[in-house]
Design a protein around this nucleic acid. Structure first.
Lengths: 212, 212
DNA sequence: ATAATTTTGTTAAAAGATTGTCATATCGAG
DNA sequence: CTCGATATGACAATCTTTTAACAAAATTAT
């Protein structure tokens, strides 16, 4: 996908979803074209950076015109892999697991939650938006019978690595982890660790800093 | 807090919560001392980077010995502003708002949720872990009577900026935003934007990349 | 007590990311 | 159809971040 199969830096990749967000907004408000300068003002980035970011993946713009909003959005969707669907399971049907299952927004982008798993007998057998909560014991069985692209880990911290191991042993290649550890995965498996508390502590860092 | 009031880069700041996590684990497992080399192996960073990061804030280590785990942890807690407590409110008692209110982990670090706010009549009057859900109309009144340090925004996307404006107009100086926009805040106000979907799309980017 | 080892804090070098500049292409007005 | 304005894509320069190297200090072993 990168221009010539060449390396695209982490910094650029992390900005792509942000571009997607802003382009979606522009498209929704009926804007047809946008220049890097205009985008830069809205997004708080430099125009140069924006042009260079897009050029990591190919020349989507036109001199004298700028970028066509919906074309560019489509290109970025392709880059981000949002031109297909994903089957997702959630392991851990506690606070975060339930919140994610209840949220319908990810479905709109092609991420379909197929099942939840937990060890709590009170939860097993229940369902959230018609998504069943299964006994964690049946995880292996479920994975053998259903093609799952992404597994979300939303268990307590101390169970997360064990769950990650079970998932990867049973063919899971991508993990979206919400537990407060960085889960270790074998080569060939992708793990994206979300650390909400890290974000909160960055905020409290800035509060302290502002009081100096 | 920075060594001599000098600037500490964003990259360093973002790593501090991660150090805190690992140091907490080490402390819990009874480890007394740790070297930058050992930490680097656990955390997947270079020892050099770790030493330089800590030195942005002062020399916490000792040659030939390394770092005392609990001392270093305490220093990082100070740096992150975790040596005090914060009063928090949550605006938007939907999926994410409720999940955050139900989660008891933040309290352990000194973040106390004092109230939730929503516009949904079915939610108003209810409570989560003894935290009341109030009518959003009473937000101004509540803020006038209670000293609040941090406001969480977990409303739908299209209400987030409006809520942010109301919050800052009424004295809120720090916002932890979960809505899928970057909320704009006046100078002097701190906003930390969490974009869960950005994280998910980064994962799908990598999935696509791995299939090339 | 001494020597060898460990490990920091610091400085310098290397790598990486961002910004500024400019030639060139396209657009749009007259 | 021509000219001026606009805006990209590419490259060079700058700035930032990371890595490597090393002297100095403390620890540990003998």
């Amino acid at each position: 996908m990168a221009r010539n199969g060449s390396y695209v830096s982490e910094a650029v990749i992390r900005r792509m979803p942000k571009y997607y967000r802003y382009l979606e907004d522009l498209e929704k408000t009926g804007v047809e074209r946008v220049s890097s300068k205009e985008l830069s003002q809205r997004m708080g980035l430099t125009a140069s950076k924006i042009r260079q970011d897009f050029n990591c993946f190919g020349g989507f713009g036109q001199q004298g015109y700028g970028y066509n909003v919906s074309d560019l959005k489509k290109e970025i969707m392709k880059i981000l892999g949002l031109d297909r669907t994903y089957n997702v399971i959630i392991v851990g049907a506690g606070n975060i697991g339930q919140a994610l299952a209840n949220y319908t927004g990810f479905e709109k982008e092609g991420f379909f939650i197929k099942a939840l798993f937990d060890i709590n007998p009170k939860l097993i057998g229940m369902s959230i938006r018609d998504i069943m909560i299964y006994d964690l014991d049946s995880l292996e069985d479920f994975l053998a019978k259903n093609p799952i692209d992404i597994a979300v880990i939303s268990t307590p911290k101390d169970k997360a690595q064990e769950v990650a191991d079970r998932l990867t042993r049973n063919g899971i290649k991508s993990i979206w982890n919400f537990a407060a550890i960085d889960v270790a995965v074998p080569r060939g498996v992708i793990a994206e660790n979300v650390h909400l508390s890290d974000s909160l502590y960055t905020l409290s860092y800035r509060i302290r800093e502002s009081l100096e």
